[in-house]
Design a protein around this nucleic acid. Structure first.
Lengths: 193, 193
DNA sequence: CAATCTCTTTTACATTTGTTAAATAATCAG
DNA sequence: CTGATTATTTAACAAATGTAAAAGAGATTG
């Protein structure tokens, strides 16, 4: 485990909720680092998700197939958590994969071990609760955007909120993330420029 | 507080995560019951949400206005929690309201007091974490449905998963919940019958 | 029960988005 | 560098959804 990678993760955690040095140490002991090459999967479709990931470097996405079409559900950049929550929290198999969009380094934490820490360190459970709350709020906001904004509004919002997405991620992935086809996204891009 | 109402709520909690009698007692002490008449608001747009609700009886929804159009974000039936998470968890004002669709009885819990219990009763925080996790998973699943299913698929799914929605809720609310206009929903209904 | 109000459907037309295929541009491997 | 592969755009047409207005159905109230 490279120290600067781990520190990036610990800083991310501290910004959400400060925990004791002791707890940080025990969390650190659970981490391993995983390097995934561009376009390779970190996790495959069909597995039950039992691991929590954090992107130290690079870009990743959660994706699935809807009638042979590759749909991107979520993008994770440096300093983002990436969790297939619908599998981790239910114990059901995930029909989603985690894929590296560029060469990416992840910190991996076995969920069962992290959950084990909750018994001893109440504060770790609190930290994790806050992480889940944040992800939940992000998802609610995305739902609102998909529910009643036009595709063009959604694209403009994305440019504004995450310009790095449009700069660094293939448009084909962005299209399905926005809930439209690539052809439609091309048209929108042509119309607004 | 009517006893059977409180028991309904305590049973709901037990099904998610079993907690001690002591903790149950302390949660119970935080609850009040609120009756809201059909079409009236329990919470209005513009407030910061500081209360957690549970529907004991009746039907409620979370709604907001997008360019003068009334959009339903969420339906809550008997035995559902109803929380404006994007405000409660961020401290920001909510641009969403909670409205009773029929005469509805809610259990209300001041969030600050509940969060206060977390200090003394680790198990209460765990219970609440699990509630948030469930809501998060539900939202992820709805996101997936909005992202890449047709309006007709979304309507059919809703009938299958929640037939009571279509039976008991005005179609104008269902339309915006599905992300479409009422005219479009009428067409879909005509097409499939 | 009649009048009014609200909800739902229908119609006609405009707009957006999807589909398929082809053309162009960009990237990658040898 | 060059050919091959992959990504993006464009075009033409089909399908889905939106908009506005009106008609019909259902509920509510005096």
């Amino acid at each position: 485990m490279m120290m600067e990678h781990l520190n990036k993760f610990l800083n991310y955690l501290s910004d959400i909720y400060a925990i004791s040095t002791e707890a940080k140490k025990e969390i650190s002991d659970l981490t391993t680092i995983v390097h995934i090459k561009k376009n390779n999967n970190l996790q495959s479709i069909g597995q039950t998700c039992r691991t929590i990931y954090f992107v130290v470097e690079g870009i990743a996405r959660i994706n699935y197939f809807k009638e042979d079409k590759d749909v991107t559900e979520y993008f994770a950049f440096e300093n983002d958590m990436i969790i297939r929550a619908e599998s981790l929290f239910t114990g059901k198999q995930s029909h989603k994969a985690i894929q590296a969009i560029s060469d990416t380094s992840f910190i991996a934490i076995p969920a069962a071990l992290l959950f084990g820490l909750f018994e001893k360190h109440h504060e770790v459970e609190r930290l994790f609760r806050k992480i889940v709350e944040r992800s939940y709020v992000d998802t609610i906001n995305r739902l609102e955007s998909l529910q009643f904004h036009t595709a063009e509004e959604r694209y403009q919002d994305l440019i504004k909120k995450s310009p790095e997405v449009v700069r660094e991620i293939p448009l084909k992935y962005i299209a399905s993330y926005l809930g439209i086809t690539q052809v439609s996204l091309s048209r929108i891009r042509a119309a607004i420029s």
